[in-house]
Design a protein around this nucleic acid. Structure first.
Length: 350
DNA sequence: TCCATTTGACCTAT
DNA sequence: ATAGGTCAAATGGA
């Protein structure tokens, strides 16, 4: 009875969150295609409505306790803000000191937590699935009971941008190729939102280079094939040779998306939605040819979570997967190029 | 009190 | 110089 209501509540929050994210995407697209003050204002109001609805919903559930503000600026991901920044009304003057103290003491509890199991191919060695599109800094590794090699990571920009996302990577005892990653909190930093992406690691740079080469080759091949098929006037072959869509579909097939992500058809729709998404980061594109695979997502089923945590996961996950949209990220990723290539492709390789 | 988690200083690689 | 890993110690939850 109560659980049914809770479930409906969560679904409602989930739907609202998705709606808000869609609105963010729309704003992003509009901003890129035809920047208009009036449109932006309108979308701002839509987003504001979503935000208020979520505030009401979340507030009403935590009877009397304002759960929404609980994690404070230390973990602002829990209070959804349109621009992703900590809510101004939460940055409350004289209570800041108290909040900071509470944040420190409750930090472990407050952060939403969810777990993914990731298998890595042997070609990746046993380094673990370290690249999920975000920049992490390892801050600890220690043998604990029931887990041999748990590594603790936090966001590189924790101090710089007050981003409290963290993750714990733990290798499975049964299968060393399987890593269990426990995420805590969602990224509030703009590392994936920057117009200028953060410097890539050597591995990333190599991956980018390989991808660029691959795409250059495919692009050349496509140009040749186009000429050939034009000569043959065989129009039916061409769609199968349009590499960007074919190439991208490999990624989709190699990923089992989280439930919420599967429901979110935009993952397969607007290209920009894919860009920079943790689930489809550049490493994952590359891993389409390897076997980096998201096995399972236990967000809403994780028994560790309190009710409020689940809501945070839902909203947090949504904001995580969609965060690049709100922040207008443009990583150089030729895979995402439109099949028609309206760009000067050479610009990517010079 | 135990143990998982985090901190912070130090070290290493780039 | 800077970023990131290591590890002993501190902290916090149960």
């Amino acid at each position: 009875m109560e659980s049914t209501r809770t479930w409906e509540h969560q679904m409602l929050i989930n739907e609202l969150t998705q709606g808000m994210e869609k609105a963010k995407q729309l704003r992003f697209h509009l901003c890129m295609t035809s920047p208009s003050k009036a449109q932006d204002l309108l979308l701002q109001k839509i987003l504001s409505s979503y935000e208020k609805a979520l505030l009401i919903l979340k507030g009403s559930r935590s009877t009397g306790q304002v759960q929404l503000a609980a994690p404070t600026s230390g973990a602002p991901e829990s209070s959804i803000s349109v621009d992703g920044s900590p809510r101004s009304d939460e940055l409350n003057k004289n209570s800041r000191e108290h909040q900071e103290h509470r944040e420190t003491s409750k930090k472990r509890k407050m952060l939403p937590t969810w777990t993914e199991q990731v298998s890595v191919a042997s070609e990746n060695g046993f380094e673990g699935p370290t690249d999920d599109g975000y920049s992490w800094r390892k801050y600890g590794q220690k043998d604990i009971l029931g887990a041999k090699y748990p590594s603790y990571y936090r966001c590189t920009y924790r101090h710089v941008q007050n981003c409290w996302a963290a993750k714990q990577v733990q290798r499975s005892d049964d299968d060393p190729t399987i890593f269990e990653i426990t995420y805590k909190g969602t990224h509030t930093c703009t590392q994936s939102n920057n117009a200028v992406p953060p410097p890539a690691s050597p591995e990333k740079q190599e991956l980018n280079y390989k991808l660029q080469q691959q795409n250059q080759m495919l692009f050349d091949l496509r140009a040749k094939l186009k000429v050939d098929t034009e000569g043959l006037e065989n129009k039916e072959i061409q769609p199968h040779l349009s590499f960007p869509s074919t190439f991208a579909s490999v990624n989709f097939e190699n990923h089992i998306f989280p439930t919420s992500a599967v429901a979110d058809d935009s993952h397969f729709g607007a290209n920009s939605h894919l860009i920079g998404s943790p689930a489809l980061s550049e490493s994952n594109y590359f891993s389409a040819s390897s076997t980096y695979q998201m096995k399972r997502f236990r967000g809403a089923h994780n028994l560790q979570h309190s009710e409020s945590d689940i809501a945070e996961i839902i909203s947090g996950h949504a904001s995580t997967t969609n965060s690049p949209i709100g922040g207008m990220e443009f990583p150089i990723d030729p895979v995402e190029l439109d099949p028609n290539f309206p760009f000067n492709i050479q610009g990517f390789f010079t």
